[in-house]
């Protein structure tokens, strides 16, 4: 008994139970309050019953929309994931190229680092109107918003990671005859690659934020578009499953990036930091 609480650890099953508890609590709270509200007013839209939600999900995910002939959930998902994927891909490429450039090459650092520092302080949402004016209302402006939103962070994070590579390792590579390009391919890239994937994982949240904001303001499809479209009808039976779906997608992307890290960087599992 005598042990301090900081030294008492849950076992495997117990950890699972404690992990599931908050989810169950939210679920129970929802069911209770939904039932209470529906008992008072069967037409209540704020906390729809699970049966209503199931009907809506069936309509959205498995039947074609009467007006457009598309199955809405999948069209929306495809549109959003395309924008998000393009935005993340471009940002990652920029982060890699500019991050390694500013982190490794003094002249690039001198030229770009103050500019990127200032750029990263511009609130991306504040220049969204400019993006709409310059890039039009379709796909490009949404992708650009994501890039502007997360690329500066990725560039700065990567630059710091490159600068944190011990000078000894860079010097040693030079004494082994490596040129700048070889140092990048054999030392810098493998070292920062896992950190880049981690940085992208951390950027997933902001990337979704910018995507949904852009879709809410101007789009014809997309997960964010749908949520903001049905908001005016108070259609919580659509919004709640959509939000759950977005969360699930984000979780899967995070998990996939982590798995990729483990697969591509076997030395991390074998004691290297």
């Amino acid at each position: 008994m005598g042990r301090r609480i900081i030294n008492r650890r849950p076992g495997k099953g117990s950890a699972l139970f404690w992990g599931a508890l908050p989810f169950l609590a939210v679920l129970v709270l929802y069911v209770v309050f939904s039932a209470l509200r529906l008992a008072e007013n069967p037409g209540d839209k704020l906390l729809p019953a699970f049966s209503t939600i199931a009907d809506t999900v069936h309509r959205l995910a498995f039947t074609a929309d009467a007006r457009s002939g598309n199955v809405l959930l999948w069209t929306d998902t495809a549109a959003s994931l395309t924008r998000l994927g393009l935005g993340l891909l471009l940002s990652t490429a920029l982060g890699l190229i500019l991050g390694i450039g500013t982190g490794l090459i003094p002249y690039v650092r001198a030229g770009l680092s103050p500019f990127i520092a200032v750029l990263s302080l511009i609130p991306p949402m504040a220049i969204l109107p400019i993006l709409f004016i310059v890039f039009g209302l379709d796909e490009l402006s949404k992708v650009v918003l994501i890039v502007i939103g997360i690329a500066p962070f990725l560039v700065r994070d990567l630059a710091l990671r490159v600068e944190a590579i011990p000078a000894e390792l860079v010097i040693k590579a030079q004494t082994l005859g490596a040129g700048t390009w070889q140092i990048i391919t054999r030392l810098v890239l493998p070292t920062v690659w896992p950190k880049l994937l981690d940085a992208v994982r951390l950027s997933l949240g902001p990337a979704w934020l910018f995507l949904i904001s852009a879709e809410a303001i101007a789009a014809q499809d997309g997960l964010g578009y749908r949520i903001f479209l049905v908001r005016r009808y108070l259609a919580m039976d659509v919004i709640l499953p959509y939000v759950t779906w977005i969360t699930l997608l984000a979780f899967c992307m995070d998990w996939a990036l982590r798995a990729m890290n483990r697969r591509l960087c076997p030395w991390l599992a074998r004691g290297a930091s």
Partner: peptide
């Protein structure tokens, strides 16, 4: 910080030869 943490022993040692013989990618 004497060896490259992401390379095995023999990859660490062979690195010098790779730099000399593969100018493009090392």
């Amino acid at each position: 910080y004497s060896a490259y943490p992401h390379l095995t022993v023999q990859e660490n040692v062979v690195l010098g030869l790779e730099f000399a013989r593969a100018p493009l990618l090392g």
